[in-house]
């Protein structure tokens, strides 16, 4: 056990530009950039498809297709093509953030009580008002569920950046692997898991704060709910799930 924690509890590793706090900072920085980019793409797209109720197959296709993309291959390819730069790293990680956010936003907006949407339209809300005043507030639990799954995934995977010469907690894994320093690798693994859990907890608190009390409890679909295809045909196996896959989708 001492092997697992000796690196972590050595005070010398807690300061300086290659110290643990600095690596946590870098790790969070990459993750936030990737989440932001992923959200900018996925949330409007999911909201639009959910609102118009057209193109649900796109969501299923995009989410499944992107899930199959191997992160390591994507990252190495982008870095080779674009150079060692923050942009290829951000794009490669954002690809992970898209499927849960897209699926969560789409199913959230799509599953808003159609009576409420009909009433909103009938009372004279314009389409953008229906989206922003009714659909998105009601979809918030599922959108934030998607964000939490995305964050988990991205933080666990951001360690891969170390392989292409970036910082972050992945450094401990890659450097430890090179020098077969188990203690250092264990420190990296533990820190990534703790960071992911901490962010998850923080987002859960945010969710409590911003979701209307009217939406709590009773019959709400969980963030892992299945997305039903528009015709909700009996073969529910043709649906994609917003279930987070193992977040360690790469280093």
């Amino acid at each position: 056990m001492s092997l697992l924690f000796s690196y972590l509890f050595d005070a010398a590793h807690w300061s300086g530009p290659t110290g643990i706090p600095a690596r946590i900072g870098e790790h969070l920085f990459y993750s936030v950039l990737a989440l932001a980019l992923g959200a900018v793409v996925a949330v409007p797209l999911g909201a639009l498809i959910g609102h118009t109720r057209r193109g649900g197959f796109l969501v299923v296709g995009i989410a499944n297709g992107m899930r199959a993309l191997p992160e390591l291959g994507l990252l190495t390819l982008l870095v080779l093509l674009m150079g060692i730069d923050l942009l290829p790293v951000t794009i490669a990680l954002a690809v992970l953030a898209v499927p849960p956010l897209l699926a969560g936003t789409y199913s959230g907006v799509r599953n808003v009580d159609q009576g409420a949407v009909d009433a909103a339209r009938g009372m004279g809300m314009r389409e953008w008002q229906i989206l922003f005043k009714v659909e998105i507030p009601n979809a918030l639990p599922l959108i934030l569920g998607g964000l939490r799954a995305s964050a988990l995934q991205v933080i666990a995977t951001a360690a891969v950046a170390a392989y292409v010469s970036f910082g972050g907690l992945g450094r401990f894994l890659i450097d430890g692997l090179k020098s077969l320093d188990y203690s250092q690798m264990a420190a990296g693994a533990i820190l990534v898991a703790l960071l992911a859990l901490a962010v998850e907890g923080l987002l859960a608190l945010v969710q409590r704060a911003v979701v209307s009390p009217g939406l709590r409890g009773g019959g709400r679909r969980s963030p892992t709910a299945e997305i039903t295809t528009p015709d909700s045909s009996p073969d529910s196996t043709d649906t994609t799930t917003a279930t987070p896959e193992p977040a360690g989708a790469t280093p």
Binding site: A119, G124, V134, S212
Partner: peptide
Amino acid sequence: HPADLRRGIGYVIQQAGLFPHK
């Protein structure tokens, strides 16, 4: 615009269609 027309006409539907978040 249909929205302007609708604001001048009350509308009640089955199941009420209330906004759950308000």
